[in-house]
Design a protein around this nucleic acid. Structure first.
Lengths: 193, 193, 193, 193
DNA sequence: CATGAATGAGACTTCATTCAT
DNA sequence: TATGAATGAAGTCTCATTCAT
């Protein structure tokens, strides 16, 4: 499996750095190859084309988000606590990889419809895990039984996403982690409190 | 003022249509010119460059959002009602201009950092109006006095944005307007209800 | 019609020169543009792609062959004389345009199947005119009534083609025109004489 | 001698198949290696470069044509009969190896000037054998003493070649062998008959 | 002898912008 | 003002060949 070879990871990691530092449209294959320390042609031994590099970046990195959330779900804690941990995890992973944060929140969104629809496929798994937490919370009586799961999911994800994007666009100059509890509180109790 | 001449609006409207129908990356200046019924060169009598067209699209169209919200704010109603009307207005404007919805939610996000930062400048006005509603709600005791305005704004905008984006990505096939009250309720009372 | 504009012909003529002097595989679009005295991009205002230039070269130039043969056919002379004039014309046109001779006999044959099948479409018209002369000769009793038209056409065209190709591959160093009468005689009376 | 080792023949035969099935421009070294059941690098133990494979294909295969003609020439039969047998042999060898027919008549002609001039070197031996038959025919009084040997050879070869190429381009769907006698007759007696 | 992963040069095409009319 | 023909820079990907094992 190509995905297990060291060069595959080398190239994916190089792509994150190059995109973060140069922007999506200035991330030429030759730059990624140079950053990864391989020849241009070597890229094409591991990836079908440039788009394939980008979707792989997303798949590899977002995969970690989903894996962590799976572990969270299996814990014996309340849905409220699971939601809190999901938010913490989401914030934490991007807080600790500044390059990745720039790539996911800003740069990869410049990609074309084709690529974004593939990215959405990857996101879907994550959103379904989020849904399962919401369902559990409703069943356990923690959350309002009348909420529309789809809308609630969009509120949760939309709020997280907007919060991180703002943080990135403000050059990551404040402490994102400190916002997590309040985000959690807002989502659960709303603005009325 | 060039902005008042008929061809200016013609070109802005043409840009919305061309981008919505062809996608951001397939919206060549020549296509916009053709749709507007002018020569390619004429575009440059009204706009500095292509980016200037796109930022103008956003400015002209989002201006309507802000104008409406200004009127809402001046009404003698509670902050809660104002927030509800803001959401209705946001949903309604995009619900009634399918092309514009595609352009703002999907296509314009593919633009580069430069353009998006200009777009954010335009958004800022809108977000400040939203902030003023939140402040008013807190001062009037309608909203929890301890909420972080910035975070609350990100929740409100993030939730609205994610909801509309999902609607667009699902080919606008369900009735967006019907979701507004529940979005409002979720934002205010959270998931606990 | 683009085909009537002066730049169209400029580019076609430039292509013939560049291909003849550099060979098919070294005839880059940029070289053709330079030879034609236009920018690279200008090529694409007149031709869909590189292949379209090459097929146009063939169409424009072979068109002259066919036109001349049409005139010959309309003359009130015997089929034998028409055949003789066809050979003369074929030899003469390539004899007087050395570059074109290299292009049709050597370089354009290196093109891919796709291009060659388009070239064959162009050739077909020419071969059908040749067929009509053969038919006339048979009907008038000049040629053997038992000959297979397709085979006879292949002999005529094959002999002409091979003769010119040999001349080109020998660097056009002998007088091609002098061979025409003997080619005609061989075709008509065969080797037995 | 490398040429005698089994892998040498394996690779040459693989090249014929790969070129016939994929076309000249899609006949990558790696495909030939795969078809031959060896590693890419192994090719270079037997051939100097890719061109060397192709010229070897031609040399090995056309060698059979020449060998057969040599045997024909040594027979105690008339030049007319020898010519007839040469045509039969030429047709037969390609009729019985459809892949080879495609390769010699269509694909190898797409090669560059360099390769084709090497191919012509190989052809020369064959053409000289043809010449010797023609000379013999003239000396024996079977053929017209006034024919130009070079032109006659070009007629013979051009006619054979054009006939086979047409057959290949028509997807080999009629019986090539049946055409041989008429080709022979046309060459000898011409169209007047 | 044999392997096959790695190399890296090279060209077609698009499209925002200009400027002579 | 308006036109639209012309410009020219810039990047992805292929594939013959090498060389360490």
């Amino acid at each position: 499996m190509k995905r297990d070879k060291p060069k595959y990871k080398q190239i994916v990691d190089a792509a994150v750095i190059v995109i973060a530092e140069n922007g999506y449209h200035q991330a030429q294959v030759s730059k990624i190859a140079k950053e990864a320390g391989v020849a241009d042609g070597t890229i094409y031994l591991y990836f079908k084309n440039k788009e394939d590099i980008l979707i792989s970046v997303f798949r590899e990195k977002m995969g970690i988000f989903a894996e962590n959330v799976k572990e969270i779900i299996e814990k014996e804690i309340t849905a409220t606590e699971k939601l809190s941990k999901l938010i913490d995890n989401h914030f934490s992973l991007l807080y600790n990889d500044r390059h990745l944060a720039i790539v996911t929140q800003l740069e990869l969104r410049q990609s074309n419809k084709e690529l974004r629809s593939q990215i959405n496929e990857v996101l879907k798994e994550y959103l379904m895990l989020l849904d399962s937490i919401l369902k559990e919370g409703i069943e356990q009586g923690e959350f309002d039984r009348d909420i529309d799961i789809r809308l609630a999911r969009q509120m949760v994800f939309g709020t997280i996403d907007e919060t991180i994007t703002s943080w990135v666009m403000n050059d990551q100059k404040y402490d994102l982690m400190k916002l997590a509890p309040e985000v959690h509180r807002l989502i659960l109790k709303g603005m009325i409190g």
